[in-house]
Measured scan of single mutants.
Amino acid sequence: HYVEVNGKKIQATSAEEAEKIAKKFAKIYNATVLDLGNYYKVT
């Protein structure tokens, strides 16, 4: 599981952790979290 933010991949140990990381970055960048199955993308 990982999160992609601005083209950078951030490794996460679980889907739950990946979701938390994605939501945190989405809040910082006022962005949207896309759940793409095996990873989250912040756009």
Rank of each mutant, 00 (worst) to 15 (best):
Y29V: 03
V42S: 02
S14P: 00
E19S: 10
A18E: 00
E19D: 05
V42F: 03
G37A: 06
D35F: 15
G7D: 04
K23A: 10
F25H: 01
I10H: 06
E16K: 12
E4I: 14
E19N: 08
I10W: 09
F25I: 12
Q11D: 08
K23Y: 14
A31L: 14
E17L: 08
T32I: 14
I28M: 14
I28Y: 14
A26R: 05
K20I: 10
A26W: 07
N38L: 10
Q11T: 12
K24P: 00
A31P: 00
E4D: 07
A15N: 09
S14Q: 02
A22E: 00
K20H: 09
Y29M: 11
I21Y: 05
K8W: 14
G7V: 01
T43C: 14
E4Y: 10
L34W: 07
Y39I: 08
A15T: 07
A12V: 09
K20C: 15
A26H: 03
T32D: 09
A26G: 06
A15K: 15
L36K: 07
A31S: 08
N30Y: 06
K20T: 10
I28E: 09
Y40C: 09
Y2M: 05
K41D: 03
A31G: 14
K24F: 15
G37F: 07
V42H: 03
A22H: 01
K24L: 15
I28N: 05
A26D: 00
K23G: 06
Y40S: 02
E17H: 13
L34Q: 11
V33M: 06
A18M: 06
F25C: 10
K24D: 08
A12N: 01
Y29S: 03
V5Q: 01
I10A: 01
N38T: 14
E17V: 08
G7L: 04
L34N: 06
F25S: 00
G37E: 06
T43W: 12
K41S: 09
E16R: 12
N30A: 08
Y29R: 04
I28R: 11
E17G: 05
K8I: 13
A18I: 03
T13S: 14
G7A: 04
T13Q: 13
K24I: 14
G7T: 03
Y2W: 15
G7P: 00
D35L: 14
K8P: 00
T43I: 15
N30T: 05
A31H: 07
Q11G: 09
V5I: 13
S14R: 03
E16H: 10
E17T: 06
D35V: 14
Q11I: 13
V3K: 03
K9W: 13
K27F: 13
V33D: 01
I10Y: 12
K41E: 06
A22M: 04
Y29G: 04
V33F: 06
E16Y: 11
A31F: 09
Y29D: 02
L34A: 06
Q11W: 15
Y39S: 07
V42T: 01
K24T: 11
T43K: 08
E19K: 13
N6L: 14
T43E: 12
L36E: 06
D35P: 06
A12Y: 08
A22T: 02
T32C: 15
I21W: 09
K41M: 10
V33K: 02
T32N: 09
K41V: 15
Y39H: 09
L34E: 12
K27H: 11
K24Q: 12
K24Y: 15
K9F: 13
I21F: 05
I10Q: 01
E16G: 08
N30V: 05
K8S: 08
T13I: 11
N6W: 15
V42R: 03
K24V: 12
V5F: 14
V33R: 01
N6H: 11
A22R: 02
K23L: 13
K23R: 14
A18R: 01
G7K: 04
E19G: 08
Y40L: 10
T43L: 13
Y40E: 01
K27S: 11
A26L: 05
Y39W: 12
T13G: 14
T13W: 11
K20G: 07
K8C: 15
V3H: 01
T32L: 11
Y40T: 04
A12G: 03
I28H: 10
Y29Q: 04
Y29T: 04
K9L: 12
A22W: 07
A12W: 03
I28T: 07
Y39Q: 02
A18P: 00
T32Y: 11
K41R: 10
I28C: 14
L36C: 15
N38K: 09
K27P: 00
A31M: 14
I28G: 04
L34T: 08
A31T: 10
H1W: 15
F25Y: 13
T13F: 12
N38G: 15
E16L: 11
K9M: 12
V3I: 07
A12R: 02
V5Y: 10
I10L: 08
V5G: 00
V3T: 02
T13R: 15
E17S: 08
A18F: 03
Q11C: 15
Y39A: 06
E17W: 07
E4L: 15
V3P: 00
N38A: 11
A12K: 02
V33Q: 01
L34D: 06
K8H: 13
A31K: 03
N38Y: 13
I21L: 12
Y40N: 02
K41A: 07
E16T: 09
T43N: 08
E17R: 07
L36H: 07
I21Q: 02
L34Y: 08
I21K: 02
A26Q: 07
N30K: 11
A26K: 06
V42P: 03
K27D: 08
D35T: 09
E19Y: 15
E4T: 05
N6K: 08
K41G: 03
L36W: 03
Q11Y: 15
K23S: 09
N38P: 07
K41Q: 10
K20L: 11
H1E: 02
K9T: 09
A12D: 02
V3N: 00
F25D: 00
N30H: 13
E19M: 15
A22D: 00
Y40W: 14
A26P: 00
T43S: 11
V5P: 00
I10M: 06
